[in-house]
């Protein structure tokens, strides 16, 4: 079965373009040299898929399984264990908000409310109607002295987000 013609279950376009070609393939090969097993490159490989595609689809799971020599079921088991891998498409900008105890004591719930309202997402985990944002609540982001931290697009870590700062922050993410 060719990976390129596998219909993407719930995907954007129905066709899975392979991720591990060209530079991405070269990056993966580089990872192979850093671990004694190919399987150990699974988390890095999944990160590469998510960076390239925004989420990890079933066909992408199949591709990862093939390049690492493990079964798709095994890869899916790992994907679903970790909270940062998306198994369905999310908004153009993905916002994680910490609400664990230390942040909760300092008003994290107000920040969540402001984010949900101003992104238009309405509910946690839902994507805004314009497809721009998805907001999720996460457990401790490890910046408890800077309540409330958020992580945008797995890349930008923003400290001390209070409701009044939300409009300015959202404006950075068109």
């Amino acid at each position: 079965m060719s990976l390129t013609t596998t219909p993407a279950a719930g995907g954007h376009d129905g066709v899975h373009e392979p991720v591990f070609v060209g530079d991405t393939r070269a990056r993966l090969e580089q990872y192979f040299t850093l671990y004694p097993t190919k399987q150990a490159c699974l988390l890095p490989a999944l990160w590469m898929v998510q960076e390239a595609r925004g989420w990890i689809s079933e066909p992408a799971i199949g591709e990862v399984a093939e390049v690492l020599g493990v079964t798709p079921a095994y890869v899916k088991g790992v994907v679903t264990f970790y909270t940062m891998y998306h198994t369905h498409p999310v908004g153009r900008h993905f916002i994680q908000v910490c609400t664990t105890t230390p942040c909760g004591l300092c008003g994290a719930e107000d920040t969540v409310r402001a984010l949900l309202q101003q992104t238009g997402c309405g509910d946690l985990g839902a994507t805004s109607p314009d497809g721009r944002f998805t907001v999720v609540e996460v457990e401790c982001l490890g910046a408890c002295g800077f309540p409330t931290p958020i992580v945008v697009d797995d890349a930008d870590f923003i400290e001390s987000v209070t409701p009044d700062k939300v409009p300015e922050i959202l404006a950075r993410y068109p």
Partner: peptide, 21 residues
């Protein structure tokens, strides 16, 4: 790089995670 799991701070879980499990 981890991928979101508090339990991976437990040393043996962390090792499994490095191993791609």
């Amino acid at each position: 790089r981890g991928a979101g799991a508090y339990i991976c701070g437990e040393e043996t879980a962390l090792m499994n995670s490095i191993e791609g499990k």
